[in-house]
Nucleic acid binder design. Structure first.
Lengths: 225, 225
DNA sequence: TCAAAAATAAGTATTAATACTTATTTTTTA
DNA sequence: TAAAAAATAAGTATTAATACTTATTTTTGA
C-alpha cells in the first residue's frame, strides 16, 4: 500500500484527487494539508511514500515545501502540481527535489501514470514539461540526463507497478482484445488451463474482478495502446 | 448493408481502407477505382451509398470526380480524403458536394466515425478542418451554418448507426464499465433477465460476440467517453 | 550452480455470459 | 386512437469466466 499526502490550498482540488485515488487499491490518501507548515508536520508524523503538492500556495510556496520535506526525509517522493509550464517553476521544482511535475490540466490517466512511475522510483514530467527539460539540459553538462528521464521512456514502467511477468503482460494484451482463454491458448500454443492461471494471477495483481475492469485499468495506466 | 466504393490511385491506400472496412459487418466495399472515369462508371453501375475519394489523382482530380458523381446521382454520399488541410481544397470539396473531408493521417477510429456519420446523412469534417470552415463561414452569410456541422456535434450519431434504443445505449455504457447483468439490473431496478435481453439485442445490432468486443467497438465509434 | 521466479497444467466449484425464443406490458408516434 | 416500437421478463441450454489449490517443469539471475 502506497501512502499519499495531498497538499493544496483548495479543498476542491484535494477532493478531486482523493476521488481519483480512492478507486485505486494500491494507493491510500493518508493525509491532507492546506498549507506548507501543515504539510511538513503531516510528513513527519505519517511518513508517506508520496507527497502531491500544489506549487502555488499562500504563506509558503510548493517549492519551499518540497525543499523542506526532502531535507527532512529524502525517502519521501514528491510530485509538483502546477497550472503553468514555465521553465522557471519546473527547474526550481527539480532543484528542490521533486520527482515529478504535472500540469493541472492533465487527465486522470496521466495523473495515475505519474504516480505509478514516481512510486517506482522513476521521475515523471508531463509532455510539454519534458521538452523544457531537454532544452535546459542541452545548455548544461549532461551528467544528469540519465537521472531526469522524460515520460516517453517510462511507458513500460506501469507494467512494473503491478509486477506483471512477460507472459502475463502478453496475455493481458490478448485478453483485452476480446479473445477467450481458448483463443489465447491456441494462439500461444499452451493449455487453456495455463492461460486461465495467468489471467487469474494478473487480475489479482491488478486488483480487478472481471475482464472489463482489467481493460479499463490497463487503459488508465497506458499499458495497452 | 452500406455499399462503399473506393477511389484512389494508390493500390496500398485502397487496400488499407478495405482492410479496415472488412472488420465492419455493416459495410461492404463493392468496388475500387484508380482514376476518375473508372470511378464514375462504377458509381453508375453499382449505385453505392458512399464513395471515398482521394482528392489528388492524375487525369481527373477528386474534386471533379465528386462534382460529376453528385450531378449524376445525388443520393450518393462522398467523403474526400486528403493529405492537406488547406482552405482551398476543403471549400472546393464542399462546393463540389462532398459530405465529408478526412485527413489521411486520421486514425482508424476517426475514419470509421466519419463513415458512420456520413452514412446517416450528416456531414463530417476532421478536427482541424472544422476550424477552417468556421473561419470561412464567419466571413460569409450564416445561412448555411446549420448545413455544415462540425464533428463535435456529431458525437451521438454513432449510436444511431447501429439503431440502438435509449435503454440499450444506457446498458451499453454500464456494461462496458465492468458491471455484470445483475449489477445493471439492480442499478436500473429491472429484472436481470431484461438486461440480458437488452445486452443480447445490442450485441447483435453491433455484431460483436462478447463484452470486450462490444467495448472495443463502442470505443472505435466514440460511443463511450 | 543452485535457488528463486516464471511458466506450465490439472483439479474442483461457482458464477456469469452468451444464444436464443416467446410473450406481455408500456410508450411513442403517425 | 390504433399500430408500431420499445421495454419488460421468463424459459432453456451451452459456453466461458472467475476463484481458488496444488504441482511439475523451465528459465533466469546472482
Amino acid at each position: 500500500m502506497i501512502k499519499i499526502v495531498l497538499v493544496d490550498d483548495h479543498f476542491m482540488v484535494r477532493d478531486g484527487i482523493r476521488a481519483i485515488l480512492e478507486d485505486e487499491e494500491q494507493y491510500s490518501v493518508v493525509g491532507e494539508a492546506s498549507n506548507g507548515p501543515e504539510a511538513i508536520e503531516l510528513v513527519q508524523s505519517l511518513s508517506p511514500d508520496i507527497v502531491i503538492c500544489d506549487i502555488r500556495m499562500p504563506q509558503m510556496s510548493g517549492i519551499e515545501v518540497v525543499q523542506k520535506i526532502t531535507a527532512l526525509d529524502n525517502s519521501v517522493r514528491t510530485i509538483m502540481l502546477s497550472m503553468h509550464d514555465s521553465d522557471e517553476y519546473i527547474l526550481q521544482s527539480i532543484n528542490a527535489g521533486a520527482e515529478g511535475y504535472l500540469l493541472k490540466d492533465a487527465g486522470k490517466e496521466e495523473f495515475l501514470k505519474a504516480i505509478s512511475v514516481v512510486s517506482k522510483g522513476d521521475k515523471y514530467f508531463s509532455g510539454d514539461v519534458s521538452s523544457i527539460l531537454v532544452r535546459s539540459i542541452k545548455g548544461s553538462d549532461s551528467s544528469n540526463i540519465s537521472a531526469i528521464d522524460t515520460n516517453v521512456a517510462k511507458k513500460q514502467s506501469s507494467k512494473d507497478l503491478f509486477e506483471l511477468t512477460k507472459r502475463e503482460a502478453q496475455i493481458l494484451r490478448l485478453a483485452v482484445s476480446g479473445m477467450t482463454n481458448k483463443d489465447i491458448a491456441q494462439e500461444l500454443n499452451i493449455s487453456k488451463r495455463t492461460t486461465e492461471v495467468h489471467r487469474f494471477n494478473l487480475m489479482k495483481k491488478m486488483g480487478v474482478k472481471n475482464v472489463l475492469e482489467l481493460n479499463n485499468k490497463a487503459r488508465e495506466y497506458g499499458m495497452i495502446p
